[in-house]
C-alpha cells in the first residue's frame, strides 16, 4: 500500500532524510528504530504532510496515489493516520466534536453521507469500549490538561474511530508507564486486521514486546541502514546501535 522511494527531505538547509526506501503491504507491522536525531519522527511527519519539511527528491505512493501531492486532510481521508508523539492541545474543542468534524469531512471526501448524532453515539460507544477510554475524557477540551497516558490513549481512540489503512505511531511509547503502554499496545493490536498496516516509530524495544513487528528497520543519518525481523530489535536492545553505526562509519 505504501511505497517510499529514495525520499529526501530537509528543513531549511538541513538535510534530514537522505534517501529512504520502504515498502509496506497490507497486514504488516513495521518498526522504525534508530538513535536520536536519525530522522525517525521526520519520516513520520513528512508522510503525514507537515509543511515544515521540504521534500527535495524521491516519491511516496499510497495505494498508487502520489501521497506528497495531497494535503494533510486528503491523506487522512485516503486512510493515513499519524499518532503524534506530542498530541496538541486544542482548547475549547471536545474530542467528540473534533471526531464528528473529522468523520464527516472524510465521508464527504469519499462521497459518503454525513453521519447523524445517533450513529455517532453508537459508534463512539463501541470504540470507547474497544480502547477502554472514559466518556468524561472525550467531553473535555481535546488534550487540554490530559496526562501523558490520557493523551496517548486518546490518540488510539481517534485511530479506532477513523479506522485508517495505514497507522503511523510516532514514539507512542514515550512518556508512558508500563500499564498505559500495555493498554495502548492492546488497542493497536485489536485494531490490526489483514487489510491495514502499522508503522511504529520507536526509540526503545519495549513497545515491541507488546506489538510484534514483522519487519524492523534501523534509521541512521536519514537512511535505512539495516532491516530485519523482530530478532533485530532484540539484538538492538542488547547491543545498542553502535555496532551497526561503527560498521558504516
Amino acid at each position: 500500500m505504501l511505497s517510499v522511494k529514495n525520499l529526501h527531505a530537509r528543513i531549511g538547509d538541513k538535510e534530514i532524510l537522505n534517501g529512504i526506501n520502504l515498502e509496506v503491504h497490507a497486514g504488516e507491522v513495521h518498526a522504525i528504530m534508530g538513535p536520536n536525531g536519525s530522522g525517525k519522527s521526520t519520516l513520520a511527519s513528512v508522510l503525514a504532510g507537515r509543511s515544515d519539511y521540504e521534500v527535495s527528491e524521491g516519491s511516496v505512493e499510497f495505494f498508487g496515489k502520489d501521497l506528497l501531492d495531497l494535503s494533510p486532510e486528503a491523506r487522512a481521508a485516503e486512510g493515513l493516520f499519524l499518532a503524534f508523539q506530542y498530541p496538541v492541545e486544542i482548547p475549547g474543542v471536545s474530542t467528540t466534536n473534533f471526531m464528528k468534524s473529522a468523520i464527516n469531512e472524510i465521508r464527504a471526501y469519499r462521497g459518503q453521507d454525513a453521519m447523524d448524532a445517533v450513529q455517532f453515539l453508537k459508534m463512539f460507544k463501541e470504540k470507547m469500549a474497544y480502547v477502554n477510554i472514559d466518556q468524561t475524557l472525550l467531553s473535555r477540551a481535546l488534550n487540554e490538561g490530559f496526562s501523558g497516558g490520557e493523551k496517548k490513549r486518546n490518540e488510539i481512540f481517534q485511530m479506532a474511530v477513523l479506522e485508517p489503512k495505514l497507522a503511523i505511531l510516532d514514539e507512542t511509547d514515550s512518556g508512558l508507564d508500563i500499564d498505559a503502554l500495555r493498554i495502548v499496545a492492546e488497542g493497536v493490536n485489536k485494531l490490526k486486521t489483514p487489510q491495514n498496516a502499522t508503522i511504529l516509530v520507536t526509540h526503545y524495544q519495549r513497545l515491541l514486546d507488546y506489538i510484534i513487528p514483522d519487519f524492523v528497520h534501523v534509521l541512521y543519518k536519514g537512511k535505512i541502514v539495516k532491516s530485519g525481523n523482530k530478532d533485530l530489535a532484540l539484538e538492538l536492545e542488547e547491543r545498542g546501535y553502535d555496532w551497526i553505526i561503527s560498521a558504516l562509519d
Binding site: A48, G49, R50, S51, S71, P72, E73, R75, A76, A77, F81, L82, F84, P87, V88, E89, I90, P91, G92, V93, N97, F98, M99, S101, A102, I103, E105, I106, Y109, A141, Q158, L162
Partner: peptide, 24 residues
C-alpha cells in the same frame, strides 16, 4: 501545530480554522 494536528485527522484547513476561532 493545532491546525496541522486537526488536518491530520481529515479536517480541512478552513474547518480547522473555524473550529479554533469559535472555540476562542
Amino acid at each position: 501545530e493545532a491546525l496541522f494536528y486537526m488536518r491530520s485527522r481529515g479536517i480541512s484547513k478552513a474547518t480547522a480554522q473555524t473550529l479554533l476561532l469559535l472555540a476562542f
